[in-house]
Nucleic acid binder design. Structure first.
Lengths: 161, 161
DNA sequence: CATATTCTGGATATCAGATATCCAGGTTAT
DNA sequence: ATAACCTGGATATCTGATATCCAGAATATG
């Protein structure tokens, strides 16, 4: 039941991008150096975020990644789904097919009451993640640490590559 | 973000046990044959359920497993935690330590606002699972399929080993 | 136009955990 | 005494996450 590490990278990277001028693109190298992450692998997550429409990419010198839409329109769920995939955590393997009265023509993923119970929890999880946007987190951080925007921008500037 | 297959096995196995006389113990072989599962591996999950106090085991001939407490006192969360472990799905790797102003003496798992947002969703998930007991599921099933108790007992009887 | 920078996507290697099997040893009904 | 059954450890296999590399395309700059 572990979520991949890439989710944390993606969340923090997207949050950092909220503190930059909207037009400014940041290359993978700088985004990775910010937290000393492996650049080539972080790039895979960034590509997933681009495919999901959360980031947009720019090729060439001065290229890189930036948020594709306002932070208020990006939920934590958007980012998690982009990196982890949209599948539910509970894999209903249709175990009931093998049980007494099991029938091949029934979709137990839908009818199995245990699967429904698990799905109910899964939906509550998604609802909670969808209710929180990057803009929410951003403003919470700025309230607790008012110098974070300045420090983040400064860090990106000083990172050589 | 996939949950292990064993969770589904454990959930259905525990549910099936709610339809047996409370004193009756069922050996691993029968529990596995019920859904054509690998017995030796299912046994590992059963052992985990015993350690969690959900099942109790009986050695020797006529031995096996039975519920250790009333179905109303066993939540879906109890079973999931017993098999999957109690860890949160979101692994906060303390990424902020490497960022600007990161300090080694701060527990970012507690203070990081993104980690808190993920934890909020995790708690909602657990709350939803804790609110559903085996007794709830059992009564829902019996409402939709009144012959399930009889059929389940019959299946256990006919399974040779 | 030439060059250097950067993204894209595929191929590949490595490692951890899930899945699965087996066995030696302990318990207990008959 | 024997056979059925659980326990826990050792081990094998397979899958997915982690990680690296490279060839090709896009583009800013001089």
């Amino acid at each position: 039941m572990k979520m991949s590490q890439g989710v944390e990278w993606a969340l923090h990277t997207c949050l950092n991008l909220t503190w930059l001028a909207t037009g400014q693109a940041v290359p993978t190298g700088k985004l990775a150096a910010f937290y000393e992450l492996p650049a080539a692998y972080l790039n895979k997550q960034l590509q997933a975020l681009v495919r999901a429409g959360i980031l947009s990419s720019v090729s060439g010198p001065k290229g890189g990644f930036r948020l594709a839409r306002p932070a208020a329109d990006i939920s934590l769920l958007d980012i998690v789904v982009a990196v982890e995939g949209a599948d539910e955590a509970f894999p209903c393997a249709q175990i009931l097919r093998e049980g007494p009265g099991g029938r091949a023509d029934v979709d137990y993923q839908q009818t199995c009451l245990l699967a429904q119970g698990m799905r109910r929890a899964d939906l509550a999880w998604r609802r909670e993640l969808a209710a929180q946007t990057l803009a929410d987190i951003k403003s919470q951080v700025e309230k607790q640490h008012p110098d974070t925007p300045r420090r983040t921008r400064a860090r990106f500037t000083e990172l050589s590559r």
